[in-house]
Amino acid sequence: MDRDIRLKRLHFRSHHRGTKEADLLIGGFFDSAHARWSDAEIALFEELIEEQDVDIMAWAIGMEPAPERYAGSIVEALKQLNYVPVAK
């Protein structure tokens, strides 16, 4: 599949998770990081996005360790939480 099509699909799936909190966390992360991803990182995010929102959110805030297969640059960047917009 073409890289642009994959990214458009991931953009939609990242922003339409089912809860506002997951949309902000996962969608905000996608928006801030996807332009730098290699094809391997895109593939990893495609796998990650299939996980349950509560699990992804727990990995991001450090409540649970991420599975070994997700360890690396994407999960480490997800843990930074500097991509979540904060209303003032």
Rank of each mutant, 00 (worst) to 15 (best):
Asp4Ile: 15
Asp4Leu: 15
Ile5Met: 14
Ile5Val: 15
Arg6Gln: 15
Arg6Cys: 13
Leu7Asp: 02
Lys8Phe: 11
Arg9Met: 13
Leu10Ser: 12
Leu10Tyr: 14
His11Arg: 15
Phe12His: 09
Arg13Tyr: 11
Ser14Gln: 02
His15Glu: 05
His15Val: 00
His15Leu: 04
His16Gln: 02
Arg17Val: 03
Arg17Ile: 02
Arg17Pro: 00
Gly18Val: 08
Thr19Ala: 04
Thr19Ser: 15
Lys20Gln: 07
Lys20His: 08
Ala22Gln: 02
Leu24Ile: 04
Leu24Gln: 13
Leu25Tyr: 05
Leu25Gln: 07
Leu25Pro: 01
Ile26Ala: 00
Ile26Cys: 00
Ile26Phe: 01
Phe29Val: 08
Phe30Thr: 01
Asp31Asn: 14
Ala33Asp: 03
Ala33Pro: 02
Ala35Gly: 05
Arg36Pro: 00
Arg36Gln: 06
Ser38Met: 07
Asp39Val: 06
Asp39Asn: 14
Glu41Ile: 01
Glu41Asp: 12
Ile42Lys: 04
Ala43Ile: 13
Leu44His: 11
Glu46Cys: 08
Leu48Thr: 06
Leu48Ser: 05
Glu50Met: 07
Glu51Gln: 10
Ala58Phe: 02
Ala58Glu: 05
Trp59Phe: 06
Trp59Ser: 03
Trp59Leu: 04
Ala60Lys: 11
Ile61Pro: 01
Gly62Asp: 10
Gly62Pro: 03
Gly62Val: 12
Glu64Asp: 09
Glu64Arg: 15
Pro65Met: 11
Pro67Asp: 04
Pro67Ile: 03
Pro67Glu: 06
Pro67Thr: 04
Tyr70Leu: 09
Ala71Met: 11
Ala71Pro: 01
Gly72Ala: 07
Gly72Phe: 06
Ile74Ser: 10
Ile74His: 11
Val75Gln: 12
Val75Ala: 09
Ala77Met: 04
Leu78Asn: 03
Lys79Gln: 15
Gln80Cys: 00
Gln80Ile: 00
Leu81Lys: 04
Asn82Trp: 05
Tyr83Lys: 05
Val84His: 01
Ala87Asn: 10
Ala87Glu: 13
Ala87Ile: 15
Lys88Thr: 08
